[in-house]
Amino acid sequence: MIREDLTVVDHTLVAEDTYQLILCGRMVHDIKQPGQFVHIRTSTDEYLRRPVSISDYNIDEETITLLYKVIGKGTKALTAYQIGDSLDVLGPGGRGFPVKARPGENVLLTGGGIGVPPLYRLARELYEKGADLTIILGFQSIRHAFLKSEFQQYGSVYIMTDDGTSGNKGFVTDGIAGMSGSFDRYYTCGPTPMLKAVVKQLGDTEGYISMEERMGCGIGACFACVVPSHDEKGYKRICCDGPVFHHKEVVLT
């Protein structure tokens, strides 16, 4: 984890209120797993940095690709950064997805909304290990959907939308219900109610969930982003013990 001024090399709108931001700097060399995040200082006025998951990265070009959705003041401020600008970033933070797959294993990836991006690099690494991927992505509508064709390089992609404007109408859990056969493993990222539903639905299948929460320091010192856990300590810090957890490690509420 370092603090570095990263340079914006690309910044484009990819879906409604959703931007792809590509940053360049040395930090990329510290990335250990897909699913880690960076903590961005979006403006000098704000006290709280904004955590954004790493969607992809390129060691040779020293670039990190992020996708973020404009939700409030911080993410709105982020949209103003242009190519060549520098951005104060802390990262890479947290523990990401363990990339576990043997050739031919059936692995399920499910993402909801802005929970989709961290699954992208994961999909590539699982694909390279020979896993057979089923990828279910949920969005509000066709206007909010992104990365569909990119994911198609690595597996069978199913889109679910709230209004049925793309793929099938319904939640990602409806998509999972429609699948035949079983999975050796699953990975999921999205809002907590979705994670909870997915974990319940897939029962004892080995699963890894990536959580989101408002963060303070982003390095484990302030205890802003905790989730209850089943161990003796009773809690996990999402920023440094997570954001990815084994599905039996934490208590989703």
């Binding site: 006290y47 709280l48 911080g74 408002r214 303070g216 302030c222 802003a224 982003c225 209850p228």
Partner: peptide
Amino acid sequence: YGNPTPRVAESTGGMLNAI
């Protein structure tokens, strides 16, 4: 254990916490 999340919020010129 402390309070349920969210435990922090931004405010103009500062922040709120309820850890």
